[in-house]
């Protein structure tokens, strides 16, 4: 790792100010992605601004039909939040499958979304649940937030402060783990909104990061059951292909994981 300057922010405003002072600053939340990248000397921020201890950025709120997860809430705290487990269990389940226990104690939803790793879990939930990403400047819809591999709509210095999820009628997440990294080789989040809309998002599969799967959405809208997908064939076009999974295999996994997610959703 190159030498850097560490700053612990006390508030969102403080964080933004610290960021602006650095010539090439980066925000640090749980650090479970940024620090490995810095260790490999693939990132060299002059300053890192730590958001993890800003009180206003931590916590899970459930009110009416909306769940709000503050951006610096760790995966562990999301996974074990009893209100969330009751209201949106698929999301708690997803958080409990990220990385490993030690990573879940440190990693945060804001960090995961800002990084937008194509194999990260949260983006699938955010896209499928049509969540809204809140920053210190604005609100960004899920559709507008993800812009491809490791790319988001966030502007320089913009801080994700929270993510709000409309509570769905049904939702489920199924993930097939990458044999080495344990990221999602392919993970699929299925959600049926209270108005009956169906959204399905797959992570780990596409060359452009998290993606919606219209063919599966249509089939599930017609018939919310795993068997409704039996005849579906997902196209392998644009899917990633590597030593752990060819594109046609990932296409198959999208279907199979979607079926399992529907079964889990009930």
């Amino acid at each position: 790792m190159y030498e850097t300057h560490y700053h612990r922010a006390s508030s969102v405003e403080d964080a933004a100010a610290l960021f602006a002072k650095g010539s090439d600053a980066k925000f640090l939340a749980g650090g479970q992605t940024l620090l490995p990248v810095m260790k490999q000397r693939l990132a060299a921020p002059t300053d890192v601004v730590d958001l993890a201890k800003i009180p206003a950025m931590i916590g899970v709120e459930v009110s009416g039909d909306t769940v709000t997860i503050k951006a610096a809430t760790t995966h562990y705290d999301v996974a074990t939040n009893t209100a969330l487990q009751k209201t949106l269990p698929a999301l708690a389940h997803l958080a409990g499958m990220i990385g490993d226990p030690a990573v879940r104690y440190r990693g945060t939803i804001g960090g995961s979304l800002a990084n937008n790793d194509p194999a990260a879990d949260y983006p699938a939930a955010v896209l499928a649940l049509n969540a809204t990403v809140k920053t210190n400047k604005r609100s960004i819809s899920a559709e507008d937030f993800f812009k491809g591999l490791f790319t988001t709509a966030l502007e320089d210095g913009e801080i994700i402060t929270a993510v709000s999820f409309p509570v769905p009628a049904k939702a489920g997440y199924a993930k097939f783990r990458h044999p080495a990294s344990r990221f999602a080789l392919t993970g699929v989040f299925v959600a049926k909104s209270k108005s009956g809309d169906v959204r399905v998002a797959a992570t780990g599969a596409s060359q452009n990061g998290v993606m919606r799967v219209p063919s599966i959405e249509q089939a599930l809208k017609a018939n919310w059951s795993a068997s409704a997908l039996d005849g579906i064939k997902v196209s392998a076009d644009g899917l990633m292909s590597d030593i752990h999974g060819a594109a046609d295999y990932r296409a198959n996994l999208i279907k199979v994981m979607a079926q399992r997610a529907v079964t889990e959703a009930g």
Partner: peptide
């Protein structure tokens, strides 16, 4: 892995500042 404030974390992925 060590315990930081009672939680088992990877000490190779934590800056001393944190």
């Amino acid at each position: 892995v060590v315990h930081v404030d009672g939680r088992a974390v990877k000490s190779c992925t934590m800056l001393v500042g944190e």
